[in-house]
Design a protein around this nucleic acid. Structure first.
Lengths: 340, 340
DNA sequence: TATTATTTTGCATACGCTTGCAAATACTTT
DNA sequence: AAAGTATTTGCAAGCGTATGCAAAATAATA
């Protein structure tokens, strides 16, 4: 029952070579003769030896670990992204150390400190902000930081987002073309760049057409608050005939209130548009018109960018916006004809 | 721009003490006088020093990393579990290294090998099986393995599940009490213990009441396949008046087919029961009767068990089943009165 | 075959930290 | 104040690996 650790030294002994030889066999770039390689591999499998990644990291200074900070796993966009990120990195020989930035945990700064302790090669912040103090700390250590689905007015790190401004504009155009007259908006958390950009594009485009928001509430990207917002908005005097909700997740809650609590018809009486295009949106029970955030492309950019930063320390941070299509479904009227 | 690494040695120099003193200040169990502690802390903050977890692990043999293998992140039960697991472990000073066992990656065995390379202190397999060969490898290294939401006929590792047999029984009783006569089942992946147990309990209880399955299809825990199954099942000659679906996730797909493709009423014409109680189930658009898997309690047990195994190597593996309540909602008839 | 160019190999060191041990210091006790 | 006890401290070794350097082995060339 004694757990004996197998080290490269033991393999070396068994194979009749030096420890360095073993190391070289298991180090991608290193050179070893066919003969020794064979001997070493044989001994290694016999002893069930595998190199200790931690010890290796200590020398190379590379851990092949990427820290991922994530919140809002309840919004399905993030599990999806997490899966894509983890898979892509796995293929490149990296692995993901997950850190939850949820309510329960301390501040993001503490979390990032813990991440740095693990000597991660890079950090991905999914929908999470970071203090500029911390940013410089990461910078000082040469650890690249990438924002995923969030941007920040700080050119020290790269950010990958969908084109939220453009997305907002598209929604506005759609609703205007559909002949809606009383267009409302339910906002996400106002500290989020995604929220700000979506609203900015939306409102701007309305303005271009001589319109403005008929109503506005804040849902903070939380379903409960979105429900409250919807109740307030749709029990007012003149209710909206269309509402753009800052995320699909909130949209579902809003639709439920509209249909099941207030008995209104979607889209005959109210059109609803969301943002994200999570899988549930396409389910017939919701059939939600929405702007797709192309998770796979966003992740692909994120990965290639972070790897680039790791390989080449002097890569300059970039901000990338990825255009996502408007997905037309049944939750919005498209003709101006109103059902009476 | 040169990235200078701060080591305990530099802190020691600045503080005017030995390197070991610095180490002791940052090692929980170690002793240091008030005076040195003060000096060291001051120097440390000045230099922005934090201990290198990897180097520490090399010595202590403890990485404070838990490997988590997870598939099916598209079933919302798992993101939820992941969040709980990560949070709980974070509080205990551990962190989660995530490995996806999805379609794209190789076999689980390869994945677990990669995990072991990181010298993890333990492994949690969420809804994933493991070969017995690999099991012994983990055992040999003294790395505890815990199955989450899956059990296996191998007493070498612990398994935490909900009481799926009992859950299946509860569903059967409910449907029988509701006066259903043609009771059907849509199965998950038949390799999964969860699937087998749910069905076993369900069928057994029907049998106790002199009934048997009116129809049965397999959905493999995949929505698309569940849809196919539902189409087949509900276009047959005599359609079921109740269907138990092995997971909520599949249930939604089934309900969509029943209502939107076939135009049947739930629960008037067909009662539907799911399993898991993911958040969507409570949304009014589905309002699904289901058996709750108490994720928080399951996670709590998982964590306490894995930590126990880590602290005390000779802890015997245990299989734990956690009872989960039947959550009555609107997708099932409760009276025997049939709507005509 | 002798000579040079090339590859392979082992030695020794370093990565940043913890920890047993013995020396040094601080605190008690009579 | 001296002896004894408890606590703190520095030294040095080692965790498992990668890698520069020089020596040894091999291949290539004349």
């Amino acid at each position: 029952m004694v757990t004996k650790k197998i080290t490269s030294l033991e393999v070396a002994k068994l194979a009749g070579v030096s420890q360095s030889a073993v190391s070289r066999v298991f180090t991608p770039g290193a050179s070893a003769s066919k003969k020794t390689e064979e001997k070493v591999r044989k001994a290694a499998t016999e002893l069930d030896y595998r190199p200790n990644v931690l010890a290796r990291s200590l020398i190379t200074g590379r851990s092949r670990i990427i820290g991922l900070v994530v919140a809002h796993l309840d919004n399905y966009f993030y599990p999806e992204a997490l899966e894509l990120i983890s898979n892509s990195l796995q293929k490149k020989g990296y692995h993901v150390l997950v850190f939850m930035a949820s309510k329960t945990a301390g501040s993001i700064d503490d979390v990032v400190d813990e991440i740095l302790d693990y000597q991660v090669d890079g950090i991905i912040l999914a929908s999470v902000a970071i203090s500029s103090n911390l940013a410089s700390r990461c910078n000082a250590r040469g650890v690249p930081v990438i924002l995923f689905n969030r941007s920040q007015d700080d050119d020290r790190f790269s950010a990958i987002t969908s084109d939220n401004i453009l997305g907002g504009q598209k929604v506005a155009r759609l609703l205007i073309a559909g002949g809606h007259k009383r267009i409302a908006y339910i906002a996400g958390w106002e500290g989020a760049s995604t929220q700000r950009d979506r609203e900015a594009g939306f409102v701007e485009e309305l303005k271009q057409h001589g319109m403005s928001l008929h109503a506005r509430e804040v849902g903070n990207f939380i379903q409960d608050e979105a429900r409250q917002a919807a109740r307030k908005m749709f029990t007012a005097n003149e209710i909206p005939d269309a509402v753009f909700v800052a995320s699909d997740d909130m949209s579902f809650a809003v639709m439920d209130v509209i249909r099941f609590e207030l008995g209104l018809k979607i889209p005959e009486q109210v059109s609803v548009v969301g943002y994200d295009d999570v899988p549930v949106s396409s389910w017939p029970a919701y059939d939600l018109t929405t702007v797709r955030q192309p998770a796979n492309r966003m992740v692909a950019e994120t990965i290639s960018m972070i790897l680039e930063c790791i390989e080449n320390k002097k890569t300059k941070p970039r901000q990338i916006k990825i255009d996502g299509p408007l997905i037309m479904r049944g939750s919005t009227r498209i003709s101006t004809k109103l059902s009476k």
